[in-house]
């Protein structure tokens, strides 16, 4: 079947099997390999992307279900000049990543947390990230990164594609 969607600001139309998962569509069809797959049971959040302004686990969405949507992955966050998104910047400064496998999903979920609550407490960040597992960082620096990103203002809770929509 045919699916069309805008991924990181670019329009794509492809012929896919109905059962193709959005995560595999992004990785294998579009070659956007940042989005990772860490489980079979919608548990780990490594595959989190933003679809129409909401964080979702792309391993549990069919590409067919995202037909017509706006999708943002980690690759779509930095500015055209390479300027890091406030969340990316905060993850780097606070050492919020080690092996990096959870990171793409964690960053997208963290943007979702701030979209929902622009100035969360530690506890609220932890609850907001309850669907994202990290084996390396013990979450300590991830929590710090999200809270420090929150200080950067509303952009930390938005993807560039939202900002375009808002404009």
């Amino acid at each position: 079947m045919k699916v069309s969607m805008t991924v990181n600001g670019q329009q794509h139309t492809d012929d896919v099997e109905p059962r193709l998962l959005l995560a595999h569509y992004l990785r294998d069809v579009l070659g956007l390999k940042a989005t990772n797959i860490g489980c079979d049971t919608t548990s780990c959040g490594a595959c989190t992307v933003i679809v129409d302004g909401l964080s979702v686990k792309s391993c549990t969405v069919l590409a067919a279900q995202a037909d017509g949507s706006q999708v943002t992955t980690l690759e779509g966050l930095a500015g055209p000049d390479g300027e890091l998104h406030p969340m990316q910047k905060a993850f780097r400064e606070e050492h919020g990543l080690q092996c990096g496998f959870c990171t793409p999903g964690m960053v997208m979920a963290a943007i979702g947390v701030l979209a929902d609550n622009p100035d969360p407490s530690d506890r609220e960040v932890r609850e907001g990230l309850e669907g994202n597992l990290c084996r390396c960082t013990g979450y300590h620096n991830i929590v710090r990164a999200v809270r420090s990103a929150a200080q950067a203002g509303p952009a930390a809770g938005q993807v560039p594609q939202d900002q375009e929509v808002a404009r």
Binding site: K33, E75, L84, F91, G100, T103
Partner: peptide
Amino acid sequence: DPLFLTRGA
């Protein structure tokens, strides 16, 4: 990190 955070490892 810059690479890990923009393009992924």
